[in-house]
Design a protein around this nucleic acid. Sequence first.
DNA 1: AAAGCGGGGTC
DNA 2: GACCCAGCTTT
Length: 360
Amino acid sequence: MKNVERINEIVKGFDEQSFQNDLIEWFKAEQRTLPWRENQDPYRVWVSEIMLQQTKVDTVIPYFNNFMERFPTPEALAEADEQEVLKAWEGLGYYSRARNLQNAIREVVASYDGHVPDEPEELGALKGIGPYTKGAILSIAFDQPEPAVDGNVMRVLARVLNIHDDIAKQSTRKLFELLIRETISKEDPSSFNQGLMELGALVCTPKSPTCMLCPVQKHCRAYHEGLEQELPVKKKKKKQKKIPYYALIVKNEEGEVLIQQRPADGLLANLWEFPMAPATEVGEQDLSEWLRTTYGLEIRKMRHVDRIKHVFSHIIWEIEVLTVETEGREAALPNAKFVTYKELSVYPFPVSHQKMLKHL
DNA sequence: AAAGCGGGGTC
DNA sequence: GACCCAGCTTT
């Protein structure tokens, strides 16, 4: 069946007007006070939406406040060093978000005189702005009736409209976008979109939704069928592969520690770390040789001090941590260098390596 | 369409 | 452990 026909089938007998009213009324009364809801500044809305991707509100709040203090305007963010931006993002994860955001903001300053564009095509062409974020900015900052379909929205609508499509597929997201275009309030698209998300976060939760307190319970087909726990349908992903490493906390005679910048692409791009040897290729007895050939450093003393397991979305690092004292003072590798304990604080580190700081 | 990309909270 | 989170980009 074509999407248009499905939409007509789905919304048949659905009281859109009443649903809108109940949802918006509830949102206006019950919405949380959040820093990015102080006003409609498109820059603030944008930053908040990027930070909120795959990230809980409670986690984002302190990062958002700090980020706005350090980079209050698009110009301030455009002029900053990427390392400063990554430092402000440190611990938040998905660091390409930060790099894409700055890239896009620089584009806005260069091409749009620092004004966030309110045209869907211009906005969507900016780095890091996909279908969801585009719709969120357009509806929340510019009051345009555009769909902003995230995980919350798909869960809420899957239940309300009793839709059993796999929400992991992007064709399903497109179906929901069409449904929203049909259903969204033209008078207050911002409260409508945010209301769906707020409802998903506070009431229509993934497990044990509190249907008894739901403002749109009477509209919910899954509730009436007793299917709210079965929806939404989502294909589960396969589990992560384990990768073993040795991490070396190397101190020279000055008491400085060896750190190294990761490549500009891929996992944790451009962040800093302590040197890591892949344990699949290097054995513990080979570490002296590895340190010599890789960094030109002679080991004086080496001690096993910790074991760290760090879970990413797609892999698991299993890290054996060793402290090392060396004779050399300089590292041969250009992206590696010795720094003092104090200097460490300006470099952005992934959480996996922050866990090793206690061994310094 | 599937995989890569973080980190934290919950059950 | 598994799942989820105000997803996007690359392959």
